[in-house]
Amino acid sequence: MVETAIELVDVNKWFGDFHVLKDINLKVGAGEKVVICGPSGSGKSTVVRCINKLEAHQSGTIHLYGAELTNDPRSVASIQGEIGMVFQQFNLFPHLSVLDNLTLGPMKARDLTRSEAEERARHYLTRVRIPDQAAKMPKQLSGGQQQRVAIARSLCMEPKALLFDEPTSALDPEMISEVLDVMEELAQDGMTMIVVTHEMGFARKVADQMVFMDEGEIVEHGTPEDFFGDPKTARCQKFLSQILQH
């Protein structure tokens, strides 16, 4: 029996009157990989943003390794840096070099010395296969390289889980695979991952659970075999046919 890393029970969220998340239930074991897909506006990004408390949820519970995450600022503070996040737009700090992007969190939030932080940064830069770009500014890198720096920045905090919010959607097509390759390696190394993506090839290879969302609900939830081989609902079939055509 694997330990439960992240558990959402009946999570609801509203933006004003708009019910974005409706009774979301999700259980992610340590080391498991979950891929969430669905049409835009379905609430899939909001799910991961609630898990690392970039958004507050209004009802239901979210647990991280048994500890409940509430919207209380102390609870929010306690998980910051524990759950890594990779954004669609990379969100690297443009005024800092690649190396400084990576060392900032470990030095300020984890009290590492500069040399410890730099050693760790170089380790993870090697892991995302750009060991020689440490001194550059983010703008000097390609989109794919920037996203890999962003992944390395998250890894430098040695998080308990890593969330990806459409990590390849802002990339030129030829750069998508270099990012997906890095993510696959992470998956193989046993990182707990929740990935919002439309990259179904990646999902097939990596996912332990597939989640399909539409209009704020989890419409379909199962293994990749069932999900791709035998989608139950019409909505999911339609989505898959649209996305796999290309």
Binding site: N52, Q80, F87, A109, A150
Partner: peptide
Amino acid sequence: GQSEAAQTIGLNYYQTMRYV
């Protein structure tokens, strides 16, 4: 996105302002 990224690498409000 800048303050969100800062938050996810564990920076508090003051550190986010000061460094990012």
